[in-house]
């Protein structure tokens, strides 16, 4: 009995330590976003500026990462939002890419997944095989046909060239169908025997049951497209550049603001996650059962 207890304590300790490690980067980013530009530059660059004798005395050359700022200030955020409109305009660019993609995924993938799972069409598994192959292809490979088609349709330089392929990505169909597989079909079939029409079944029964899977789909799709880099560089103009691309240039030009910029950038998906995490976890969990 005591041996079991000790074993449990050891396991809990390992888990809590590990979980902390997983959480630390976010905490560090948040903590650094509350530092003054001066402090950031001193912590993250080799150059030690005049008037900073304390650091010189400590002869610190390496980056100092701590969880507590020397002095808490919101100056990074204030400068980020009010000195230069670029950051907020790039933020908006990301919003108008990510949200249409999410909406498209929900409207296109959910019905397609339902059809794949419920239909008795003869060659559906062969079609589905195609979805899995496309899902597994690295982004750079699928960018080739995407680029060719966008070029033919004259969509290059417009947001549609990024949004359309992303909204069609088979990952959504895959996740939703896996989820449906884990769900008892009797439920849906019972409704069909009642004479409910397919469309009513979808809205009255399937949609509510889909909620966890939809939460997972929405969050995963949002993060993925909030974070696009390659598509933006290849398809979009400078003015349409999303935050993700702008941010990678900031380390060079605006190092002193990068942590506020980073934290504000990760806030939308983080809040979505905190708000929907139970649904999302349930949604992911059920995809792996069958």
């Amino acid at each position: 009995m005591i041996k079991r207890r000790i074993f449990s304590v050891v396991i809990y300790t390992i888990l809590i330590l590990l979980a902390t490690l997983f959480f630390i980067p976010v905490v560090v980013i948040f903590a650094n976003s509350l530092m003054s530009s001066f402090e950031i530059l001193n912590r993250f660059t080799h150059t030690v500026e005049a008037g900073n004798m304390q650091y010189v005395a400590d002869s610190i050359h390496f980056v100092r990462l701590t969880l507590i700022p020397d002095r808490v200030t919101f100056s990074q955020y204030l400068r980020l939002f009010f000195d230069d409109p670029t950051y907020l305009s790039r933020f908006w660019n990301s919003v108008v890419i990510a949200l249409p993609v999410v909406l498209g995924q929900v409207l296109i993938s959910a019905p397609a997944a339902y059809a794949f799972e419920m239909s008795r069409m003869r060659h559906k598994e062969k079609l589905y095989f195609m979805y899995i192959v496309i899902m597994l292809l690295p982004l750079q490979v699928t960018l080739v046909p995407n680029f060719i088609m966008a070029d033919w349709l004259g969509l290059l330089g417009t947001r549609a060239s990024v949004i359309l392929p992303a909204a069609l990505n088979p990952f959504g169909v895959f996740i939703m169908r896996q989820y449906l597989r884990g769900m008892p079909h009797d439920y849906i079939e019972a409704a069909q025997l009642d004479g409910a029409s397919q469309i009513r079944i979808v809205f009255a029964i399937v949609m509510p049951m889909f909620k966890p899977a939809l939460a997972a789909l929405v969050i995963l799709t949002f993060v993925n497209n909030w974070n696009i880099v390659e598509q933006a560089i290849i398809f979009l103009t400078q003015a349409q550049e999303p935050l993700s691309v702008y941010l990678s240039g900031m380390a060079v030009h605006n190092l002193d603001l990068i942590y506020a910029a980073s934290f504000f950038y990760l806030l939308p998906p983080l809040l979505m996650f905190l708000y929907w995490k139970e649904h999302m976890i349930e949604g992911i969990a059920l995809t792996g059962i069958r």
Binding site: F22, F23, P25, V26, I29, I219, L220, V223, W226, N227, V229, L243, S244, L247, S248, S262, F263, Y265, L266, P269, L270, M272, F273, K277, M280, I281
Partner: peptide, 11 residues
């Protein structure tokens, strides 16, 4: 699960 929703650009 948290790191999954953190955009790579920010870390």
């Amino acid at each position: 699960l948290l790191p999954l929703v953190i955009p790579s650009g920010s870390v």
